Simulated assay, not measured.
Amino acid sequence: MKFVLEVTVDDGAVARDRAAELERILRYWGGNLRHYALEPGDGSAVHDSAYQEVGAWRVVES
């Protein structure tokens, strides 16, 4: 399996403070990780602090 996290960092809140927004995204994702089986097909949208969708994560076959 492969875990893929893609975040666009050139628009919105992420563009204003990339490090802080990515830190927040990773912290939020990590806190919710236990709610997923982490099997191929699992995934979810990723949002910045302004609740705008800036990417997604997914689990795929490697």
Rank of each mutant, 00 (worst) to 15 (best):
V60Y: 00
A15L: 08
L38I: 12
L33P: 00
H47S: 06
V4Q: 14
M1D: 01
V7W: 07
E6C: 01
S62Q: 12
I25D: 03
K2N: 08
D11V: 12
F3W: 14
W57R: 08
Q52E: 13
L5A: 06
H35Y: 15
V9Q: 04
A56Y: 14
A13I: 01
L38T: 09
G30I: 00
N32I: 07
A45P: 11
V14A: 04
E6G: 07
R27T: 14
V4H: 12
W57H: 05
D10K: 00
A37Y: 10
S49T: 09
D10M: 01
R16I: 02
N32W: 05
W57G: 04
V14E: 03
G41H: 13
D42I: 10
D10Y: 05
I25K: 06
E61S: 15
V7N: 01
A13R: 10
R16W: 03
I25V: 13
R24V: 01
E39I: 14
Y51P: 00
E23K: 12
D48H: 02
E23I: 02
G41E: 08
E21I: 06
S44E: 06
P40E: 13
L33T: 03
E23L: 09
V46E: 06
E23D: 15
E23S: 14
L38G: 07
L33W: 05
G12L: 08
E39H: 12
Y28V: 13
G41F: 11
Q52T: 02
V14R: 05
P40S: 07
D48S: 03
E21A: 11
P40N: 10
G12M: 09
T8L: 12
R16T: 08
H47E: 11
E39C: 10
R58D: 03
L5P: 02
Y51K: 11
R18D: 02
V4C: 10
G31Y: 08
H35F: 15
L5F: 09
A37H: 10
A56M: 08
V7C: 04
Y51G: 01
